[in-house]
């Protein structure tokens, strides 16, 4: 028998209420917080240390957020790990330093519902033919991105300089939606001098960074390449911003850094120096509240800087390291060194 709260969240995701959406979101967020507080011991300790319990929280904004790094240090799961139906790892990291986001069966179902609805709402005009420039889910069972593209019905996964891709793109006769990581596109472009003219109505969606997998290309230049090499006009190019610690995604148009999330996600920005909400219009660290994070923690504190807009937020990227560093080896460097050795 489906969990009643899960069902209400799924209903909220699939049918945004015309009225009182904020109130419904808040009610669902507070109930989900209560469940996660009760079932995720590391999260409960964080809340207790801050004197926060489900009895004391009245607004969704007051739900304590876990740092994204907590997904590396702890197993944040409402169910025992052996009951997890899937676990997704962060990319760009290896071994002990990788994030682990556990999904139980119910959570995985909600995740797939949310990613489909979120995608449809953000990109309603996209062609049905979807090709993914990434490993297929069977080859990368811990990649949330591959899982997502599988759930979206990608008919072809192209990875590691798929030699056939260049030819297949030439032979296309109907519009295609190419969804890939930025470095996968750069690898495609660098692997051949061929230029394509994809059928009219084709769409490009890029996500992620370069992660040392290809040369770094400035975002404006990358979108110029979509137009010049693939023949896809800028108006048909989009970006996706997501993370393995979060079930829902944000989308943006072209190289525009503004990202928009679905109605079951709320985002605020935090002044890193004070720990309080940023002043309106000023950058802060992005904090997301995602009702689709069913089995872990819905409130996530990122290290990404952003500025809120009426429709979403402007993504500035990782907070710049303004501090002058010395010769001390830090945790991150240590992990990297130990993984490499």
């Amino acid at each position: 028998m489906p969990n009643a709260l899960l069902q209400r969240i799924a209903d909220f995701i699939t049918h945004a209420p015309a009225q009182d959406a904020d109130a419904v979101f808040e009610s669902l967020a507070l109930q989900l917080f209560a469940k996660q507080y009760a079932l995720v011991p590391p999260y409960r300790r964080l809340c207790d240390a801050n004197g926060v319990t489900p009895e004391t929280v009245r607004r969704w904004q007051d739900i304590p957020a876990v740092p994204a790094a907590a997904f590396k240090a702890f197993d944040l799961s409402c169910v025992p790990l052996d009951m997890a139906a899937a676990v997704f790892h962060s990319s760009g990291t290896t071994g002990a330093a990788a994030s682990r986001h556990y999904f139980d069966t119910e959570g995985l179902s909600l995740y797939e519902t949310s990613l489909r609805v979120g995608f449809r709402e953000a990109l309603p005009e996209c062609p049905p033919k979807l090709w993914a420039l990434m490993p297929d889910p069977a080859a990368a069972p811990n990649s949330s991105l591959s899982h997502m593209l599988g759930a979206l019905g990608a008919e072809r996964f192209c990875w590691d300089a798929d030699a056939a891709l260049a030819g297949a793109l030439t032979e296309l006769t109907e519009p295609v939606m190419l969804f890939g990581t930025a470095f996968a596109f750069v690898q495609l472009f660098d692997g051949t001098s061929k230029n394509w003219r994809l059928p009219e109505g084709s769409v490009v969606i890029e996500t992620g960074g370069f992660k040392g997998r290809s040369r770094e290309v400035p975002r404006d230049e990358l979108y110029g390449l979509f137009e010049a090499r693939l023949g896809v006009p800028l108006a048909q190019c989009h970006s996706e911003y997501g993370m393995s610690e979060m079930a829902s995604q944000f989308y943006g148009h072209g190289p525009n850094p503004e990202k928009r999330g679905p109605h079951w996600v709320r985002t605020c920005t935090i002044d890193a120096e004070t720990g309080e909400d940023s002043l309106p219009g000023t950058p802060g660290l992005l904090r997301h509240y995602d009702l689709a994070n069913w089995n872990s923690v819905l409130a996530l504190q990122t290290q990404d800087s952003g500025t809120l807009t009426p429709a979403g937020f402007i993504l500035h990227g990782r907070a710049p390291d303004a501090e002058v560093r010395g010769c001390s080896l830090t945790v991150e460097e240590l992990w990297t060194s130990r993984s490499a050795s």
């Binding site: 740092p67 002044d271 890193a272 290290q303 710049p320 501090e323």
Partner: peptide, 10 residues
């Protein structure tokens, strides 16, 4: 600065 502050808070 913001980056160090967020590191400490984290």
């Amino acid at each position: 600065a913001a980056s160090a502050a967020s590191t400490v808070r984290e």
